[in-house]
Amino acid sequence: MTEAIILEQKSTSASTNRSVSNKRLYIFPTQHGLIFALMLIVMLMGSVNYTNSMAYMLTFLLASLYIVCMLHTYRNLKGMVLKTNNAKPVFAGETAEFPLILINRTTTDRHSVVIHPWPKKRIGKRMQYRGAEYSNIVPGEIHKGTIPVMTQVRGRLRPGRLRIYSTYPLGLFRAWSYMDCSNYCLVYPKPEGSTELPQYSQDPTRDHYGEQIGADDFIGVRQYKPGDSIKNIDWKALAKEQGVLIKRFSGSGARQLLFHWGHTKHLGDNEKRLSQLALWIIIAEQEGLRYSLELPDIKIPIGNGDSHRHQSLRALALAEYGN
């Protein structure tokens, strides 16, 4: 779901207005800019006291540069278009990377723009993010980037308010604007706990259910159907231009696993239980096993593959149980 803003620029076309909202641009001297202004006052007093023409001239030159710098800093962001999107899911503790597009819709080059979540949050001693920086933004070109945000807990992480700012060219002024970003990153629970998979399924008699399709012995090929695991594609056959074929294995040793909320009861803490389930899912995926997930309020039927994995982990990420 893309969201977009344009900075201080009235859009004439209706088609762009629908998705791009116009944002106000703010500008104020930076800390250095305030010191500079103070210095200008001191310089002016010196010039008046000594009635020194060149001192006046220098003071006025710097004062003019100050004003001109303000205009240039403002222009450096004006008309810029910023688009964001949802980030790819990550595990808690990893860094979420929100994709970002910056477009310069003007005819002049823009420089040194920083985009970061606002207000600044810290995790321990580290900032929660490093801002995305753009050094040279050429007119008409699309500049891709990411806002990296460190994650801590599972769930939906929203960067919330983003700030886009620039102090170019002299660092005496900062122009900035905000984007209230409703994009999110799905954060899976951090995989932790025992690497040993649960030895039994809910129904021990059906533990070895997958005779036909398993992972042990090769028994032949069949036509590819959408949804088949990419791991089972017969690549050699594909290379021989025999079409997309799926290798089939006898499943004597293949297990169908059921990851049940109840299996993790001994861990006590809900978050630890979810972490354990996440770890099992990862291991099961790595080993190409089929598994189903049962949580108190949701059941995910047996399956395997990326979308199944995502569906299961998503359920874990969004699970809400009181402790």
């Binding site: 920086e133 753009y134 050094s135 060219p169 002299l170």
Partner: peptide
């Protein structure tokens, strides 16, 4: 001299030294 000082201010603010 002022021009050079201004240019050095530009370089502090030229992220990525473009």
């Amino acid at each position: 001299a002022v021009l050079v000082l201004i240019a050095s201010l530009v370089s502090f603010n030229d992220r990525g030294a473009s």
